[in-house]
Simulated scan of single mutants.
Amino acid sequence: MTRTPAITGDDGGSGASEARRSVELDGVEALRLLGSVSLGRIVFTRHALPTVRPVNHVLADGDIVVRTHGDATLTRYARQAGGEGAVVAYEADDIDRDTHLGWSVVVTGYARLVTDPRELARYQALLRPWGSQRMDHAVRISPDLVTGVLLTPDGPSPRA
């Protein structure tokens, strides 16, 4: 982990005005943390503009997998990209709303539709959709770039 300067500033009205330190995470730790939560945000291009969608995910064999339906913009985007996949970013975090301590991870990689029926059935069993809409597709994101930060309290300063 690499240390960066302490973060201070407005507490956003939360009462958390303590200094915090941002610590860069290595890729292995960042993916481990991402796998510890089930909610994230996928960023992709729609009409040449960035689009963000909240989705639930599972980390499977080092890849991020999300379920979607056949008419979803993300499904169409991944399908249009063909075998090489579509460039996406995926972000997940766990930051305490009061203290602003926690972590955030961003993965950039290629999203591809899952086409193998056995794999698709596996992901359908692992990921429960939020709504009642039929989610009969899955998209797998292969991480190429994994970054993350850990927000920790800045230790006490030595007194002179």
Rank of each mutant, 00 (worst) to 15 (best):
R97C: 03
L25C: 08
H69F: 15
L34D: 11
D63Y: 09
G155S: 08
W130K: 10
V43Q: 10
A111T: 05
Y110Q: 11
P117L: 15
T8W: 06
R53S: 08
G15Y: 04
R46K: 07
P156T: 01
T45S: 14
T115Y: 07
G82T: 06
A60W: 11
D136Q: 00
W130G: 06
G85T: 03
I42T: 07
G131R: 13
H57E: 02
E84V: 13
V114I: 12
L74H: 02
G148C: 11
G35K: 13
N56V: 02
L39V: 15
T73H: 12
G109K: 05
H137F: 00
D26A: 08
D61K: 12
A81N: 04
D26W: 04
G155E: 15
E84N: 12
V88D: 00
G13M: 01
L127Y: 10
V43H: 09
V43K: 02
T8C: 09
L120W: 03
H100W: 13
H47S: 07
G35E: 12
N56G: 13
D96T: 01
V23M: 02
P50S: 01
I7R: 14
M1S: 14
L151M: 15
Q124K: 06
V28K: 09
L151C: 14
G83K: 09
A30E: 01
P143H: 03
D26P: 06
G83R: 14
R76I: 04
T8R: 15
V28F: 05
P117H: 09
L151V: 15
V52K: 11
L120E: 01
A160K: 06
A48N: 14
V55K: 06
L74W: 03
M1F: 09
G13Q: 06
G27F: 05
G102A: 00
G102F: 00
G83M: 12
A48Q: 09
L39R: 10
D116Y: 02
V146K: 08
T75C: 14
I95V: 14
D94K: 13
D93W: 00
V66Q: 02
I42P: 01
P129E: 04
P5K: 05
L31D: 02
L49Q: 13
L145D: 10
V55I: 14
A111I: 00
A16T: 08
V107P: 04
V43M: 11
R46D: 02
T4C: 00
H57T: 04
V139A: 03
S38H: 15
A138Y: 08
V106P: 01
T152M: 15
